[in-house]
């Protein structure tokens, strides 16, 4: 069945993040909060970052969207937690390159589970789903 090629998009690890999102919820108190949506499809995310001395101490997200956007948000929060802002931005740049189908050195920035999203590059209509959370993170730290 032709659904086989869907496996390159919907990897097990993605579906796991979708079903069991990490860092989903709200950080109490006065922290950096970014709301972002994808106006073409209705996906929306609220990302909260607690940044202290240039380091992302805590990251949580809430929102609604497809498996790709929500799994990507889950992975992103996991990846940037404990990272310096500059490193988080560099990861975001790396992630964008990955979405464009460029070769990316995965070890360089320990993208962990995120590697599973590589297949999204072959589904141009879904790239914006995967980048939504990263764009929110970039907007947040740039405002900081």
């Amino acid at each position: 069945m032709s659904f086989n090629n869907l496996d390159t998009l919907y990897r097990q690890v993605i579906m796991d993040h979708y079903k069991n999102p990490r860092n989903k919820g709200v950080i109490e108190g006065d922290v950096l909060t970014v709301d972002m949506n994808n106006p073409t499809c209705g996906d929306r995310i609220q990302l909260q970052l607690q940044v202290e001395e240039g380091i992302v101490q805590e990251a949580k997200f809430d929102g609604e969207g497809c498996s790709i956007s929500m799994a990507s948000a889950s992975m992103m929060t996991q990846a940037v937690k404990g990272k310096k802002i500059d490193d988080a931005l560099e990861m975001s740049e790396l992630f964008s390159k990955m979405m464009l189908g460029e070769d990316v050195d995965m070890d360089k920035l320990s993208l962990e589970d995120i590697e599973a999203l590589q297949g999204v590059a072959k589904f141009p209509a879904r790239i914006k789903c995967a980048t939504l959370a990263w764009k929110a993170m970039e907007k947040g730290v740039n405002e900081e």
Partner: peptide, 21 residues
């Protein structure tokens, strides 16, 4: 199943539907 995921899966079968708002 989120509608975007439905639409992507149907597209793999050559079926074009719209998903979104």
């Amino acid at each position: 199943v989120h509608p975007h995921d439905t639409a992507t899966a149907l597209d793999a079968e050559g079926i074009a539907v719209r998903a979104g708002h």
